[in-house]
Design a protein around this nucleic acid. Structure first.
Lengths: 223, 223
DNA sequence: AAAAATATTTTTGTATCCACGTATTATCAA
DNA sequence: TTGATAATACGTGGATACAAAAATATTTTT
């Protein structure tokens, strides 16, 4: 339910769900900064409900690693240290590597064309400097993961994309340079076409690991 | 905070935490069966609190994948299908494989002796048929993970161990046969001693993947 | 007797209330 | 002025209250 990828359509039936979506969205867009305190009463007022559903939403957000909940001291926006950021990318590398390996046998020509299309869309967003490059990028990775047909794997990877999303946005906004993303992602597609599962897995791992250092510069220095 | 491994010592300061521990423990021990409905009021009464903290604990347990929460219809114990069980073991294989790779450079002779001790303890528990073989087994895997010094990685792996724990217990209880576990784990230690990171990673992956089919027999057939 | 409709009970979701813990400010002594 | 201490404001955790939804039991109808 963290859901970076699937763009889940369903309308929120409960107040808790609405609170969860509302705060998660704000966090992904970087509206709050790490360390900011989230006061249930304020957020509840924003979306017209009482504190209880918001409190419950906080629990889920804490499980997702988006906020930190300390007893009697409330809810603060989680931030990543450089080490934690690298760690997340290490984890992503093996999880998405696995996803690629599992996806390979399920990709037909039609699917390759879809991946090419997604790559193209990501590139266009990148050219225009629009920050929905980040969303397109998630879509690209998400599409490959989806092909693995492993719900829990998809879910976990998606959750990690949510956690790093604010940093991806900062990174993208701060670098006009047309970075090497295009070639790297094209290389992933090429590796998938090669039919060599282990090779493709490796290419995805390398792609992900090569991204981390670029983001690391934009992580708040210490803590 | 799912915590299969670290045997966190801290006393529960909040009611929510106590509820979380209480229910998680019951689920791990297999006291409830998949599909069982958990009624907040009942559990609250058991441990002497109101249903609010229990509700909140449910949210976390749902994030852990231990229960399923459906709006307006309460909380039911999650069960794994065969596919889901295999999927979890696939995920474990790459995560724990990564952990082994990262742990390797940090293991000294003293640590190897500790691993041997843990292997021995696991074996003794296995011989005596005591079902804390499962706990010893977690300790062994947990020790290796801990050496990776990657908090989030450790946390995720630990969470997966919690999810499969009930099935591990059923499996162990149902098989008096002294299974191949001893050799497999000894092989992991040997691979770590070899100093070849990629080899050790592979050995751990194979070990984990080879376990899945044995457990799969004890998963309720369909659903 | 089976199916449908209705009433009743149970349980869930959310709001409100209160006591306690924490942070902040004000007051005072060195 | 600075550091300790007391007073105050604020926020959190948890209990309780109540409305709405689901599940269950009951009655009615065919």
């Amino acid at each position: 339910m963290p859901a970076a990828f699937p763009a889940e359509p369903q309308m929120s039936s409960t107040a808790e769900e609405e609170a969860y979506r509302h705060v998660q969205r704000a966090l992904r867009l970087g509206r709050y900064k790490p360390g900011d305190r989230l006061i249930p009463e304020e957020i509840a007022a924003e979306i017209g409900m009482s504190r209880m559903p918001v409190r419950e939403a906080f629990r889920r957000l804490a499980s997702d690693g988006l906020v930190v909940l300390r007893p009697n001291r409330g809810c603060v926006v989680a931030g990543l240290t450089v080490d934690e950021l690298y760690e997340i990318f290490e984890i992503r590398s093996v999880l998405e590597g696995l996803a690629v390996r599992l996806a390979m046998p399920r990709i037909d020509e039609e699917e390759f064309e879809e991946l090419d299309r997604l790559l193209e869309r990501m590139e266009r967003a990148g050219q225009s400097g629009s920050s929905d490059w980040v969303v397109r990028h998630q879509e690209f990775h998400g599409r490959i993961c989806a092909l693995s047909r492993r719900p829990k794997l998809i879910h976990q990877i998606s959750a990690l994309h949510v956690v790093i999303e604010p940093y991806m946005r900062i990174w993208f906004d701060d670098c006009d340079k047309p970075h090497s993303a295009r070639e790297e992602h094209a290389a992933v597609i090429a590796a998938l076409r090669s039919g060599d599962e282990l090779h493709a897995e490796k290419v995805m791992q390398d792609h992900i690991l090569s991204t981390a250092p670029m983001l690391a510069e934009f992580v708040s220095p210490s803590r």
